[in-house]
């Protein structure tokens, strides 16, 4: 016999289901007014420092169909790389956004400020990125990934460096389509499958 560990086991995930929006994005679900203030409506407030950008994209399943029922959360620091709550963080950056695809086009739009680089525990810096968490019917545990930017120096980023198959790095990099405009598609399965993260 040995001593007993008194650690607990993490609660198991379950799919968010097709109606996740009534809980987390009531206005999108047709229930405007359920809450006086919804969570994650925008990651920035008027007057946030830095470059305002828009990222447009879709979430595709293994057949190439753009999901209409996914919900995505994004989490990021401000333009200087400070997260809300850290000393000197931009008070106009709340960092969290919730968004879903338009029922017609299957496209989402994230409007935010471009984040700054963030330190890494090993001492280096991570290239600017936005953290994503994707849930939907048929996704049994939320999928984590990141948006990096084509027009930033991503060469020393420790996470991108860990991707063995270099063409897959591209799945995490938003392509510039115009001033302040980016395209970022997420492929859940198959050709061009997005690199999903376990960290």
């Amino acid at each position: 016999m040995v001593q007993k560990l008194d650690n607990l086991i993490e609660t198991a995930s379950q799919t968010a289901g097709p109606y996740v929006h009534i809980g987390l994005m009531p206005t999108y679900a047709g229930n405007a007014g359920a809450y006086e203030q919804e969570i994650g409506v925008s990651p920035i407030e008027e007057g946030a420092q830095g470059e305002v950008i828009e990222i447009v994209g879709s979430v595709f399943d293994g057949t190439g169909w753009a999901l209409r029922d996914a919900m995505i959360e994004s989490w990021q620091p401000d333009a200087a790389g400070k997260f809300p709550g850290q000393p000197d963080a931009d008070p106009k950056v709340t960092g969290l956004c919730r968004f879903a695809a338009d029922a017609e086009s299957g496209e989402f739009t994230l409007r935010t400020v471009k984040p700054g680089p963030v330190p890494h525990r090993t001492g280096g810096m991570q290239a600017p990125h936005i953290t994503l968490w994707i849930v939907a019917r048929g996704i049994n545990i939320g999928l984590n990934t990141r948006i990096y930017f084509e027009d930033e120096d991503n060469s020393a980023d420790p996470l991108l460096a860990r991707i063995e198959q270099k063409p897959r790095v591209d799945t995490l990099i938003a392509k510039k389509t115009g001033p302040g405009q980016y395209r970022f598609d997420i492929r859940l399965q198959g050709d061009g499958e997005t690199v999903f993260l376990d960290l």
Partner: peptide, 18 residues
């Protein structure tokens, strides 16, 4: 879940400030 689950392994790494 059949068409919405990744085929490839997740990339595992120690967590970062993000």
């Amino acid at each position: 879940s059949v068409a919405r689950s990744p085929n490839l392994p997740l990339l595992s790494m120690e967590s970062t400030p993000s």
